[in-house]
Design a protein around this nucleic acid. Structure first.
Length: 288
DNA sequence: GCCAACGTTGGC
DNA sequence: GCCAACGTTGGC
């Protein structure tokens, strides 16, 4: 499953302090053990009216690297401790602690519960505030679906658990899935670590989950910002061809081994290999 | 539209 | 806690 964009949360006011501005109802927030590090739930979604703004910002989607003003992320890069999370213990994290990820979204229209979940790299590029990566749900989140079943499930690599392992400053490939040319199309940066996913609480939303509530959130979001769109995407076909080569750095790439996971880890070696492919096309890579 | 892979459920 | 059956994903 991929990022679900049916929820328009982008109207949420952007403040540097974690969202606690205008919660509609002062619900007591009981964090689950999984959410204990998370901040309070986001304020309720506010409807977005910035189609025009989006179009304007989108007029140059070929821009290969984010504007200079956006480049210095507020994220701190070098101070993270190594991830001890079990989501992929066989893949070492980099020496700086920075991690790499791959997140899928569907760039072509598809409707769920009457909402178009389409979300492309251009849609992300048009955002002016950090974008909540929401709608990560079951089928890739057994841990959340059945935490009471004990910890035999806890070590599974799930999209949600990967979301929760993300740190500010981590970079992620943006992957277009369920479309004509599935491909890695760009880079985004994690700018806000996980917090409860409010799109689970609203029964009119496609990602409503009756088991999740503000008192007991089951699902998480992170927030991301656009960093780069590749002029030449790396297609799934290429990924598979690379993997087939002898001693390929992509031999164990999560997203190729476990195609159904919507948020997967990318090792440092995989990241370096793939960004080098893009560099060979003459493109600069964000963060280099 | 097909179907392989694998997450999820529920019986035991 | 195991595991078979079911459901979904996602590429083709």
């Amino acid at each position: 499953m991929v990022k679900r964009k049916a929820d328009k949360l982008e109207g949420v006011p952007l403040t540097d302090e974690p969202r606690r501005t205008s919660r509609r109802i002062s619900q007591p927030v009981k964090q689950t053990e999984f959410e204990s590090e998370a901040e309070e739930p986001s304020p309720p979604p506010m409807k977005k009216t910035t189609k025009a703004k989006k179009a304007a910002a989108n007029k140059n989607p070929e821009t290969s690297v984010a504007p200079a003003g956006k480049m210095p992320s507020k994220a701190v890069k070098a101070t993270k401790k190594p991830e001890k999370n079990g989501n992929n213990p066989d893949i070492p994290t980099s020496t700086t602690g920075q991690q790499f990820w791959l997140m899928k979204a569907e760039p072509e229209s598809r409707f769920e519960k009457g909402h178009d979940i389409k979300f492309s790299i251009d849609d992300l590029a048009a955002k002016t505030i950090p974008e909540p990566w929401d709608g990560i749900r079951a089928y890739v989140g057994m841990f959340a679906a059945a935490p009471e079943r004990g910890n035999s499930h806890a070590k599974r690599r799930t999209a949600r658990n990967n979301l929760r392992a993300m740190k500010n400053g981590d970079l992620a490939f943006f992957y277009h899935s369920s479309c004509k040319v599935p491909a890695i199309v760009g880079i985004m940066e994690i700018v806000e670590e996980h917090s409860p996913d409010p799109s689970a609480y609203d029964s009119s939303k496609p990602y409503f989950d009756p088991k999740s509530s503000p008192d007991d959130p089951k699902w998480s979001i992170v927030k991301v910002e656009f960093r780069q769109k590749f002029e030449t995407p790396i297609t799934l076909t290429q990924l598979k061809a690379f993997r087939a080569e002898d001693d390929s750095p992509l031999k164990n790439m999560d997203m190729l081994r476990q195609t159904r996971i919507s948020v997967s880890k990318v090792s440092e070696g995989e990241w370096n290999f793939l960004t080098a492919v893009v560099e060979k096309n003459g493109e600069k890579i964000y963060g280099r």
